[in-house]
Amino acid sequence: TTVHVNGVTYHFPNPEEAKKFVDRVVKEAGLTVEVKGNQWDVE
């Protein structure tokens, strides 16, 4: 699973890890998340 955060790419072994990361980032920074298949874009 690939997560893009403001142009930076993070790779995770599974969607659960990616979701935990995204949830944390979104809570801390108040960002928006767009999910496209296995790819997350966070802005």
Rank of each mutant, 00 (worst) to 15 (best):
Asp41Thr: 11
His4Val: 15
Pro15Ile: 14
Thr32Phe: 04
Lys19Gly: 04
Val35Gly: 07
Thr9Tyr: 12
Thr9Gln: 09
Lys27Trp: 06
Gly30Leu: 08
Gln39Leu: 11
Pro13Asn: 11
Leu31Arg: 08
Lys27Ala: 09
Lys36Thr: 14
Gly7Ala: 01
Val22Gly: 02
Glu16His: 05
Pro13Asp: 14
Val42Ser: 11
Asp23Ser: 03
Pro13Phe: 05
Phe21Trp: 05
Asn38Lys: 04
Pro13Glu: 14
Glu28Gly: 09
Val25Trp: 13
Glu28Trp: 05
Lys27Ile: 07
Asn38Trp: 03
Thr32Ala: 12
Asp23Glu: 12
Phe12Met: 00
Val8Ala: 05
Gly30Ile: 06
Val25Ala: 06
Gly30Pro: 05
Lys27Cys: 13
Arg24Pro: 01
Glu34Val: 15
Glu28Thr: 09
Arg24Cys: 15
Asp41Arg: 04
Val22Ala: 05
Asn14Thr: 13
Pro15Ser: 11
Glu28Arg: 07
Arg24Ser: 13
His11Tyr: 14
His11Phe: 13
Val3Glu: 00
Tyr10Trp: 03
Asn6Tyr: 05
Pro15Ala: 14
Val33His: 07
His11Val: 07
Lys19Cys: 13
Glu34His: 14
Val3Pro: 00
Asp41Ala: 06
Thr9His: 13
Val5Ala: 02
Val8Gly: 03
Trp40Asp: 10
His11Asp: 04
Gly7Lys: 02
Lys19Tyr: 05
Asp41Pro: 13
His11Trp: 15
Val35Ser: 07
Phe21Lys: 00
Thr2Gly: 00
Val26Phe: 14
Trp40Glu: 10
Val33Asp: 06
Val3Ser: 00
Lys36Asn: 13
Asp41Cys: 15
Val26Leu: 15
Val5Glu: 01
Asp41His: 15
Phe21Tyr: 02
His11Thr: 06
Phe21Ser: 00
Lys27Arg: 12
Arg24Asn: 10
Arg24Thr: 10
Gly7Thr: 01
Val26Cys: 15
His11Gly: 01
His4Gln: 12
Thr2Gln: 05
Asp41Val: 15
Val8Phe: 07
Asp23His: 02
Glu17Asn: 02
Pro15Val: 13
Pro13Arg: 04
Lys36Ser: 13
Thr32Arg: 10
Arg24Leu: 12
Val42Glu: 12
Val8Ile: 11
His11Gln: 04
Glu16Ser: 06
Tyr10Cys: 14
Glu43Gly: 09
Asn38Thr: 05
Glu43Val: 15
Trp40Gln: 10
Glu17Pro: 00
Thr9Met: 09
Glu16Leu: 04
Gly37Asp: 13
Trp40Val: 12
Tyr10Lys: 04
Asn6Leu: 07
Phe12Val: 00
Gly30Lys: 06
Glu43Lys: 10
Leu31Cys: 15
Pro13His: 09
Lys20Ala: 11
Glu17Asp: 09
Phe21Glu: 00
Phe21Gln: 00
Pro15Trp: 15
Asn6Trp: 06
Val22Phe: 12
Phe12Cys: 09
Glu34Met: 07
Glu28Cys: 15
His4Gly: 02
Ala18Ser: 01
Lys20Gln: 09
Val3Gly: 00
Phe12Ser: 00
Asp41Lys: 03
Asn6Val: 02
Glu34Ile: 15
Val8Arg: 11
Phe12Pro: 02
Leu31Gly: 12
Val42Ile: 09
Pro13Ala: 13
Phe21Thr: 00
Asn6Ser: 04
Val26Met: 15
Gly30Thr: 07
Arg24Phe: 13
Asn14Pro: 00
Glu34Ala: 11
Thr2Met: 07
Leu31His: 09
Lys36His: 14
Tyr10Ile: 12
Thr1Met: 08
Leu31Tyr: 11
Glu43Tyr: 10
Leu31Glu: 06
Gly7His: 02
Val42Trp: 07
Ala18Gly: 01
Thr1Tyr: 14
Glu43Met: 13
Ala29Tyr: 08
Gln39Ser: 11
Thr9Val: 14
Glu17Val: 04
Glu43Gln: 11
Val3Ala: 01
Trp40Cys: 15
Pro13Thr: 12
Thr1Val: 15
Val42Met: 06
Lys20Met: 05
Lys27Thr: 07
Val25Asp: 02
Glu34Pro: 07
Lys19Pro: 01
Glu16Gly: 04
Val33Pro: 06
Thr1Arg: 03
Lys19Arg: 10
Phe12Ile: 00
Ala18Trp: 02
Leu31Ser: 08
Lys36Gln: 13
Tyr10Thr: 03
Lys20Glu: 11
Leu31Asn: 10
Val26Thr: 13
Gln39Ile: 14
Val35Tyr: 06
Thr9Cys: 15
Asn6Cys: 15
Gly30Gln: 09
Thr32Glu: 08
Phe21His: 01
Val26Arg: 13
Val33Phe: 08
Lys27Ser: 07
Asp23Lys: 03
Glu16Thr: 07
Val25Pro: 01
Glu28Ala: 10
Thr1Trp: 14
Lys27Asn: 07
Lys36Val: 13
Leu31Ala: 13
His4Phe: 13
Arg24Trp: 14
Val42Lys: 09
Lys36Leu: 13
Asn38Leu: 08
Leu31Val: 12
Trp40His: 11
Glu43Ala: 09
Arg24Ile: 09
Thr2His: 11
Ala29Gln: 11
Tyr10Glu: 03
Phe12Tyr: 01
Asp41Gln: 12
Val3Lys: 00
Lys27Glu: 05
Gly37Cys: 14
Val26Tyr: 12
Val5Phe: 14
Glu43Asn: 11
Gly7Val: 01
Val26Pro: 04
Asn38Tyr: 03
Val3Thr: 00
Gln39Trp: 15
Val35Asn: 08
His11Ser: 04
Ala18Cys: 08
Gly37Tyr: 10
Val33Gln: 05
Arg24Val: 06
Asn14His: 02
Glu16Gln: 07
Lys36Cys: 15
Val35Ile: 13
Ala29His: 13
Glu16Tyr: 05
Thr2Trp: 11
Tyr10His: 12
Lys19Leu: 09
Ala18Gln: 01
Pro15Gln: 11
Leu31Asp: 06
Gly7Met: 01
Lys27Val: 06
Gly37Val: 12
Lys27Leu: 10
Thr32Trp: 02
Lys27Pro: 03
Asn14Gly: 05
Val42Asn: 11
Pro15Gly: 06
Glu17Ala: 09
Pro15Met: 14
Val3Leu: 03
Gln39Tyr: 14
Asn6Lys: 04
Phe21Ile: 01
Val22Leu: 14
Val42Ala: 09
Thr9Leu: 09
Trp40Met: 11
